[in-house]
Design a protein around this nucleic acid. Structure first.
Lengths: 173, 173
DNA sequence: CGCTTTAAAGTGAGCGCTTACTTTTTTATT
DNA sequence: AATAAAAAAGTAAGCGCTCACTTTAAAGCG
């Protein structure tokens, strides 16, 4: 990966996250990346290809982020780890995750089943802990995590340690 | 409001909700509305004005939807009504609400404080019911409602009566 | 090593097309 | 015929993308 190629990815990420994919012209990306417009197309084929590269990158990272939860064997720790997750996103990666959430609203990129393995794991954990309706609990917690992430990324809400504690206590983990 | 003006609003709503604002040309809106393109600009000035009209309409409707919750005096009923809300959205209005949620990702249209009155009311209800940390509970429930709406509108998840019951029981309302 | 050849990376002008919006022409109504 | 509403035609800017070309890096070889 050359420097300029990475510059393009970085600029595109920032602009897509802020203004949206369709509202961001390739000319603007090139300008911000300090690169000729043509180079975008040499490296990524077309504008969609550039977005695709960002998405694939994200899928890898999402997998890495969820791995410690999926492979955790202590049910309490599963719940604890998933609750902690959105509060531990690094600021420098906000744009990165914001784009992922934003893109879910574009039909062709949204895959509601992507979270299935996580939800299954949560259901298992709740079941182990003797909750009534572990599937429903899993679904609910997944949605809570989702919505916390959204409030942080979209609304710019400061991640509140107190709210994290509140959740940890609520689930007793 | 003439018929054609309403046709334009209806077509724009559908297309904006499906493809997004920027990806929807006015020519397509006109075609779907069975109207000449110029008429859009006669009625709404410009494309943004058309979007604005849809947003203003939504704000009114949102107020109407939340009024029964805000003015409810029984704390249990406050919780019950807000939980029931996302499950009672009429299918014919999915596009309408989908657009509202989609638009929150555009910085200039997102106003995180819009839900303040509702959250305050929920906090009051939880306080009345003797919950620990009523503010946190209010925030949490508001986010749950938000994420349920999203899963229905964005992911096309069928509203599950069983999940609604699960929540009502969980909150004992 | 030095020299040549090939390949890869990078440039920027510009093309064809679509877009939001405007102006002109037609149609309908009183 | 006069006026307003709608349709049709037109415009200019901006878009994604191509392409002919230059520069830089890598590979082949005596």
């Amino acid at each position: 990966m050359t420097d300029k190629k990475e510059n393009i990815l970085h600029a595109a990420l920032e602009l897509f996250a802020k203004d949206g994919y369709n509202a961001t012209p390739t000319s603007k990306i090139a300008k911000q990346a300090g690169v000729s417009e043509g180079l975008i197309f040499r490296h990524f084929g077309n504008k969609k290809g550039l977005l695709q590269a960002l998405i694939e990158d994200a899928e890898t990272r999402m997998g890495e982020l969820l791995a410690p939860v999926i492979f955790e064997s202590d049910p309490k720790m599963v719940i604890r780890k998933i609750i902690t997750l959105p509060f531990s996103i690094d600021r420098s990666e906000y744009d990165f995750w914001k784009l992922q959430f934003k893109i879910k609203w574009e039909e062709e990129y949204n895959n509601p089943n992507k979270m299935k393995p996580l939800i299954d794991k949560l259901a298992w954990a709740f079941s182990e802990l003797g909750f009534d309706g572990p599937e429903e609990e899993a679904l609910l917690l997944n949605q809570i995590i989702d919505s916390i992430s959204i409030s942080i990324l979209r609304d710019g809400v400061e991640p509140q340690a107190s709210f994290q504690s509140f959740l940890l206590e609520k689930y007793n983990v």
